[in-house]
Amino acid sequence: MHGVKRVRLTPEALAAKKLREQSKIKEYLALSDEVLSKKASKDWSREAFDLTTRILQVNPEFSAAWNYRRNILIRGIFPGSSATEINDLLTEELTMTTVALKSHPKVYWIWNHRRWCLENIPDGPGTEGEGVNGWRQTNWEREMFVVDKMLDADSRNFMAWDYRRYCLASMPVARPETAELTYTTRKIEANFSNFSAWHQRSKILSSLWASGKLEHSKSKEEEFKLVRNAMYTDPNDQSVWMYHRWLIGAGEDKELLEREIAIIQDLLDEQPDSKWCMESLVHYKRLLLQKHSSLLDAGSVTNDCRRLLSELRVIDPARRRRYDEIEKQL
């Protein structure tokens, strides 16, 4: 690490370190063998369950141990437990995996185990108005709090974003989509390069527009204002340009295309080496040629594309062949 002075170990210290590492490896392999042996013998005891806890604390990516743990719960522990006890057990599982996520926020198997826990919470009493789904709703609400904290720690954690979408789709009492839209606004304004937040926003808006819960044309104009602010703040951020392309769509609206082309050209005049400005201009001018060629000077637009592609080959030589292929399609 930068700024940290390296300590030179003596030969004796190196040898001691190596012995400690070998001892840990030996202990882990012995524990792994014991877990797999109990799994093979279909041991559904609490002792076997505790062994899975120990090994998963060392290696949370041990998928066979997670599967075995769930089998122990289903076949050995749940059958003799009341609904209240099962709910308490699964709550403890969620707590255990919350601790694991703090050190391993991008291990798929931890997130997967949380899904299983939530899906197996029994119906139970809740507060007035919640009915039999009280336990379920309480746990799902708590889960959204956990996801919020995970994304506060790392707003680009794609696994946390994927899990968030799963939670929103699965909650017994749905959370208003407008609330999620507000959440993505907050995340995007904190960091324009948060691709996952832009992607989540596109999903929410598509749903709101399709259901008629949000007026399409007015809200879309608000989105163009938001993305334009991001484009001018950081014209080299790919996330912003991908979202802009999503807003434009298939290019059926000629006036919209021409308006956005003019705005991007203004930005390119200020940032003459912006690869994404050039790429987007080529993309949108090609849409004009494909959808509206009879209503414009096609030769002039084609020449603009060729000129931009020529400049792109200079500033982005690694993608030269890609630009060659695009020019062949003009």
Rank of each mutant, 00 (worst) to 15 (best):
A169K: 15
W209D: 13
A174L: 04
G299P: 00
G134F: 12
D123T: 03
F78W: 08
T10F: 12
L289D: 04
H283V: 06
F224I: 04
R201Q: 01
K187F: 03
S219I: 07
K187P: 00
A65Q: 06
G3Q: 07
R286M: 11
G124P: 00
A197L: 01
Q238F: 14
S193V: 13
H104T: 15
G126M: 03
G124W: 07
K285H: 12
P125V: 10
S217R: 09
E255Y: 12
N157W: 01
K254M: 11
A190C: 12
E215N: 07
T84K: 07
F195N: 13
E221R: 10
I204K: 02
S202V: 06
K220E: 09
A65H: 05
S280I: 05
G126P: 04
W44Q: 00
I55P: 08
Y163F: 13
G129D: 10
N112P: 10
T84D: 09
L308D: 08
P317D: 12
D237R: 02
T98V: 01
D43F: 00
T10H: 08
K225G: 03
S81K: 08
R164K: 02
F145Q: 14
R20F: 15
V282D: 10
L268T: 06
D304V: 01
E177T: 01
S206R: 15
A13I: 14
E47Y: 08
N194G: 04
S274D: 06
F158C: 00
G126T: 05
D50E: 09
N139I: 07
V282C: 07
Y232E: 08
P176L: 00
I77E: 08
R319D: 10
R46Y: 03
T84C: 01
S193C: 13
K225E: 03
S193E: 10
